[in-house]
């Protein structure tokens, strides 16, 4: 079911979607966006990839199984909570770094949490949708 139009457009759209998803994640703290939205977008990008190039190449590009991506996301979110525990403020207490980078949001534990959500949601989208594609190819 590989379509030439799909492949050509996917080549352009997938990277753009991925970059856009990261952009959404970064600006999420101040403007619409955030981990959930970014993760959904990124997941959708990989789904599109799988549609266009087939599952095998998507897995090759990912290099890691989606279930593990979910685990990593959960771990990152949890670690952001542990930071507060280590600094002695209590679980999930916010902690911010001092330095600012202009294109990044304020770095700190909430941002790390958001990154975790992003990764997790991305993995979930893949886990949920891939098995449905799998049987076609």
């Amino acid at each position: 079911m590989k379509s030439f139009i799909l492949i050509i457009s996917a080549r352009v759209i997938v990277p753009v979607m991925l970059i856009f998803s990261v952009f959404l994640l970064f600006r999420g703290h101040n403007l619409p966006g955030g981990g959930f939205i970014g993760g959904l977008t990124a997941g959708a990008a990989f789904v599109l990839h799988a549609f266009a190039f087939g599952m095998e190449s998507t897995f090759k590009a990912l290099r890691i199984r989606p279930v593990k991506i979910i685990a990593i996301g959960l771990l990152l979110s949890f670690l952001s909570g542990v930071i507060g525990l280590v600094t002695g403020e209590g679980l999930f207490k916010g902690y911010w770094l001092d330095w600012d980078v202009s294109f990044l949001p304020k770095l700190g534990s909430p941002f790390l949490f958001d990154v975790g959500v992003y990764v997790l949601v991305m993995g979930i989208v893949m886990v949920i949708i891939f098995p449905n594609i799998q049987e076609d190819s």
Partner: peptide
């Protein structure tokens, strides 16, 4: 609602797969 939507998505997908 935001989190509920995402969770709802998970549940819907689960239901769909179950039916399949």
């Amino acid at each position: 609602i935001l989190t509920a939507l995402v969770i709802g998505f998970g549940i819907q997908a689960f239901a769909l797969l179950l039916f399949k």
